[in-house]
Amino acid sequence: MATPYHRLARETPAYAWWKLPVAAPVIVVVYFGLTILLIVAAAVWFAASSSSGSLDGWFDAVGDLDTAHLDYFVLDLLSIALLIPAVLLGVLATGPRPVGYLSSVAGRLRWRWLGLTAVVATVVTTVTIGGSLVVGEVTDPSEASTPTVIDPSTAWALLAILLVVPLQSAAEEYLFRGYLMQLVGSWTRFAIVPVVVTTPLFVAGHGYGLWGLLDVGLFGLTAAVLTIRTGGLEAAIAAHAANNVVLFALDALGVISATDDTGAGPLDLVPTVVSSVLLVVAIEWLARRRGVQRTRDPIPDPPPPLAPMWPPPPYAMVWYQPVQPVTPVAPGPALHPDTPDYPGELPPGWR
């Protein structure tokens, strides 16, 4: 039986129940060390540049994600992006390996598939969010905002959003839909369990009100479904990055406030519901059309042990060695030539 994404860590010869749980403290330690380096770099930046910000000011504004103060905004997103090397190094240190199976069932990040899903996600997100803004302006013109003129500071903010937001989005996906989903998936065969468990954890990482948290939960559920259905993180990363880039770009342009959900209500969930349904349907169709690999081929059974020989080698004659029957194995679907071995170190006799 083929191995789905959430079971990659479990269905490997090198699986041990303690490996992924032990990766958690390793991830924390690595992330803490990288954060210290980022703080040192930020201190040097504030001391050497003409920025109006300061290290204490950044500490006070952590989590605000205010595009008007670009220094703090970029540092906040970079502090989240550090989760990518932390998660990869944590899993690499404890196993299973190769760590590429944290990205997809192909053992690597499928860049072409990531690009295709990014195009789809950007179109869907732009249409749904843009449509909701148009509807809001028509139904309540008093709430309409006057867009900011694109001056040099706004242009720099938009450039920073395009460069840094995808890293922040990918980092959250590697943690929640990658490491945590495979951790929970190593305990159960049912995909619904890691989906249900990781979604509230993803919601808990956001400091919004009720309707804002429900909105985050809907997106987290969508990203988890995309990960399971496509066999990797690419579609979830694309959807996450497209959503955040569009929202922060509109924030920088003065159209909305991306992180302020004050006064939000049930109608504010409509764009997320619509975009989630469209994303799942469109990416599912695209995955079927392009034949995207969704599962990993099963590991063949190990060969039976050799019969004991007497006298033992090197004195045994060649004719004492038993002839092992060869069982024909039907060829599986062709894999990408860059696909590495199955995660984990294969013990002797498995190659």
Rank of each mutant, 00 (worst) to 15 (best):
90 G>H: 07
118 A>Y: 12
128 T>Y: 00
114 L>Y: 07
75 L>H: 07
129 I>K: 06
128 T>Q: 00
93 A>W: 01
91 V>M: 08
87 V>G: 05
104 S>R: 15
116 L>D: 12
79 S>Y: 04
87 V>H: 06
107 G>T: 00
93 A>M: 07
76 D>P: 11
81 A>W: 03
95 G>W: 03
124 V>T: 03
75 L>R: 05
115 G>V: 08
90 G>P: 11
88 L>K: 07
96 P>Q: 04
106 A>M: 14
77 L>G: 04
89 L>T: 15
105 V>R: 08
115 G>F: 10
108 R>W: 14
120 V>L: 09
73 F>V: 00
75 L>C: 12
109 L>D: 06
122 T>F: 10
80 I>S: 10
98 P>L: 01
86 A>H: 13
85 P>M: 05
105 V>N: 08
106 A>D: 14
84 I>C: 02
132 S>H: 02
89 L>H: 08
80 I>K: 12
109 L>Q: 09
108 R>D: 14
119 V>R: 03
84 I>T: 13
78 L>I: 15
109 L>I: 13
75 L>V: 12
110 R>S: 13
126 T>I: 11
112 R>P: 04
103 S>D: 15
130 G>I: 05
78 L>F: 09
116 L>S: 13
85 P>R: 07
80 I>N: 12
134 V>D: 04
102 L>A: 09
126 T>H: 11
94 T>H: 02
134 V>L: 11
116 L>C: 12
82 L>F: 03
100 G>W: 00
77 L>A: 05
107 G>C: 04
122 T>D: 08
128 T>H: 00
